[in-house]
Design a protein around this nucleic acid. Structure first.
Lengths: 147, 147
DNA sequence: TCCAATTGGTTTCATTTTGAAACCATCGAA
DNA sequence: TTCGATGGTTTCAAAATGAAACCAATTGGA
């Protein structure tokens, strides 16, 4: 991990949601991570895939590396950007955003990409559960503010 | 749902992750939704809780309503903004972002809010699974591009 | 009843971020 | 040795953000 010290000024320091959004919530950042999930990629790979401006991509890659989400191989001419363990751990969040989009951001029949497992079967829908295993929702949970 | 027609120009039209980010990925949007999870809230409630500029809050509430994520009661002076079913369904994504933040965006011992169930026990960690129930990760899944 | 405060904004304008385009340095291949 | 590809940076215009002022409608109290 990097840059979680007291120097950074978070939007809402005690809230893990807000901290995450501060780290990966800027335009393009999560899409860069999404693409990096498919394997190591170069500057131009991201450019081609996303159509993002060079300077912005440069900035986002730097920020993601500063946040400990991407690592960059310093050797050789053709740099390669790769997810760190923390970066790969964003998989769950990206799956959750993907599944919400599938449910609410497409009209019926609109073409969309799918996330499938090794056998080609769609990944199961995520469902938050309490410690006992029973499903929970915003109605049955609450946020305990930091003491 | 609203505004998923062909008129909107998405960053990456076939990708559900990108569509979700287009809808709720702007600064403040997800924090507004996070707060709305705790129950109906007024304009000033959000202002007080978030410290967001009035015009930006006004814009975000409008966009979230346009996206079908918030509904607003038109009657009475004191408006109330409330999550729709689609809005409440963002719970899973927000939990996923929260859990990532808990794991990677705090130094040990830093105070943080917690999400707990009705009995006060922390919500279990989300874990993506294949259809068979086995855990999956970015290494064991792939994105099938839209046909 | 009238006044003041509260609520829910909009408008204006300065600052910051984004993005397009041009520029540039390094490396490898021909 | 020259050319193209790669991985940037710089420059500048346009768009988004944010602070502050302004405003209209309602509510509560003297």
């Amino acid at each position: 991990m990097a840059d979680t010290g007291t120097d950074r000024d978070w939007t809402d320091p005690a809230c893990p949601v807000a901290r995450t959004v501060d780290l990966v919530g800027e335009r393009w950042s999560l899409l860069i991570v999404r693409d990096a999930m498919e394997g190591p990629a170069s500057f131009t790979d991201f450019r081609r895939r996303l159509g993002i401006a060079r300077n912005i991509l440069s900035d986002r890659l730097r920020r993601l590396a500063d946040a400990g989400i991407l690592s960059t191989s310093p050797s050789g001419r053709r740099h390669v950007y790769e997810l760190t363990a923390a970066g790969k751990d964003l998989f769950t969040a990206i799956v959750a955003l993907r599944q919400w989009g599938e449910r609410h951001a497409f009209a019926d029949g609109e073409p969309r990409s799918r996330l499938v497992d090794a056998e080609g079967r769609p990944v199961a829908e995520l469902r938050p559960q309490g410690r006992g295993g029973a499903p929970v929702s915003s109605d049955t949970t609450r946020v305990e503010r930091a003491g």
